[in-house]
Design a protein around this nucleic acid. Structure first.
Lengths: 333, 333
DNA sequence: TTGAAAGCGCTAACAC
DNA sequence: GTGTTAGCGCTTTCAA
């Protein structure tokens, strides 16, 4: 199990270990004959660079900490996938941490990552409070947020243009002939405030009445959307379309509608937000607004690399355009 | 950005830096007054242990490499979630790598992980060939596989009892009154051979005729299940239930059935395998066999820790029991 | 072109 | 109880 080190190779090659290091790092100041001989020897002996030791002297670990509330979530696992692929393509590896349900754990994992000497941190914040909560630590290391939840903070982030997304969706419903559109769901985080704003803006421009439905403690989950919708449908339905603030909420509403024999899209059109993978499933086919996850991940990694490698100061807010995914839950009036 | 080291604290405290190290590590050979004073000082100065340096001397990184074909997959992201939580609870952190679509990349990431000096590797293999492919590397570091795809290899793994799963499901259909049950889907990996075997065993015991349907190149995806099912349904339906080898295939079949106005479960009962999250969605509600993902992850981490911390040699095959999740796609005859 | 040696931040064995 | 020091495996000046 004892792994072979530079010294071992050096001894076998009859050179100093500095020479071996040079051969491997592609330094120009070494004879090409020596280099080849050494590289061949390294291969034979099964030598692999010890990154811990290298990190020690280089003061760079080529490690990126990825913090997500829960990797077991379609949006985040997709983001993580692209982030890891992109990071690795540039020589970085990913240290993954779930920031769990409570804010306390979020701070804990960031601390751990700092102790691990990661070169940078990519974080999907749990809540708008996250920024303040971990500021003391993120000041010490290049950090990029993925989400718009910290709109007014001096911190880099990449996010989808949430406001634009609901605007596009509302406009789409309008073009389909809908004039009574209900906005369904949470408005408690920055992200969701922006979504609501896009809807309001569209209503204003198009001369529609703004109508909201949400409970005080609304969360984004199918179960919660279902409960909210049951409550909603106990009142008369005097609107022809619903814009749900998240796909999960939309799916919950769909379930409630099914149970109460409200046909979607015949009686009611429905549009969601996020384009989580469930929306494309048979029997669901939810029309929705897509967050460009792949792009978000790649851009976030690029921004982080820029900070790490070029020491770029300041912050940038990278806003990506969401797109409308037409499926089967909206109909023309 | 320069972080504070032991030396800095030592200087500030007016002691040697070994003393600071002792205070922090909870060594008994130190005065409790000195300890408290130092700990307080560390806190004030914002000292955090440099894990890279520590790993260097301890020859232990407290790092576990997690290799999955694609974290952007419900089964794996759920596994990853529990693995990370459990690992961290025991002082380990997770280095995440996607082994991507090709076998070549799988070997690459394992090599990287080795260079990173991870204490152990947790791997969901891409294919039955994985074992042979990376053997040279996994011999050098404690490794636990998650999957049954290497049944006869001298290597530790944790997996669900796939054979038992299909047995249970077939028995369930039998008890519901079904006598003509078709097995639908792939049989090309060890995992899927075992699933098919469980079905065959149940058929034998219960006196049912074994009936298979699968295409040569069947893969587990909704799209593929859909194509296969369209083909299947172009022939007369002389069976009353279908056991799909994976939930994805089952969902594809569901879609095809909808299109061809074959009612499930009225005309045809359907059961899947895996209990991926999509199965519990409204309108889908697929009856299925659950792989105990949480348990699998936790057991895998425990096995790995045992190897790492106690140097346990040999290998163990940990087989967990799957369970039947009754939902809405099976009916009694 | 190559070797010698310092030093990254830490732990632990050995002194006192 | 506390200080001194070697050394983990590597990169990189500085000499030769």
């Amino acid at each position: 199990m004892k792994s072979v080190t530079l010294k071992d190779v050096a001894k076998a090659a009859g050179v100093s270990y500095a020479t071996v290091s040079r051969a491997l790092s592609g330094s120009p100041q070494i004879g090409s004959d020596t280099r080849e001989r050494i590289i061949k020897l390294c291969d034979e002996m099964g030598y692999t660079t010890n990154y811990v030791a290298r990190s020690m002297v280089m003061k760079k670990t080529d490690l990126i900490g990825l913090v997500v509330p829960s990797i077991d979530n379609q949006f985040m696992s997709e983001l993580a996938y692209y982030a890891e692929m992109s990071a690795r393509a540039h020589g970085y590896n990913i240290m993954l941490c779930n920031s769990g349900p409570d804010l306390k754990q979020e701070k804990t994992v960031v601390k751990i990552l700092l102790g691990r000497q990661v070169d940078g941190i990519l974080i999907v914040p749990q809540s708008p409070k996250t920024y303040e909560n971990i500021k003391a630590y993120t000041d010490q290391v290049p950090t990029v947020f993925v989400s718009e939840n910290l709109r007014d903070q001096p911190q880099s982030y990449v996010a989808a243009d949430n406001s634009r997304g609901t605007y596009i969706g509302t406009k789409y419903l309008y073009d389909l002939g809908h004039r009574d559109i209900l906005y369904f769901g949470r408005r408690h985080s920055t992200t969701h405030q922006l979504r609501a704003e896009g809807y309001m803006k569209a209503c204003q421009e198009l001369g529609l009445k703004q109508r909201f439905y949400n409970s005080e403690y609304s969360r984004s989950s199918i179960a919660h959307g279902y409960e909210m919708a049951k409550e909603l449908f106990s009142h008369p339905i005097d609107y022809t379309a619903v814009f749900a603030s998240t796909d999960s909420n939309a799916l919950g509403l769909l379930k409630a509608a099914d149970e109460m024999h409200i046909s979607i899209p015949d009686q009611l059109s429905l549009i969601g937000f996020d384009n989580i993978s469930a929306t494309s499933l048979p029997r669901l086919e939810l029309t929705t607004i897509e967050q460009p996850k792949r792009n978000m991940a790649i851009q976030a990694v690029d921004m982080l690399r820029d900070k790490i490698e070029n020491g770029t100061q300041g912050y940038v807010h990278q806003i990506l355009l969401p797109t409308l995914i037409k499926r089967s839950t909206c109909r023309a009036l």
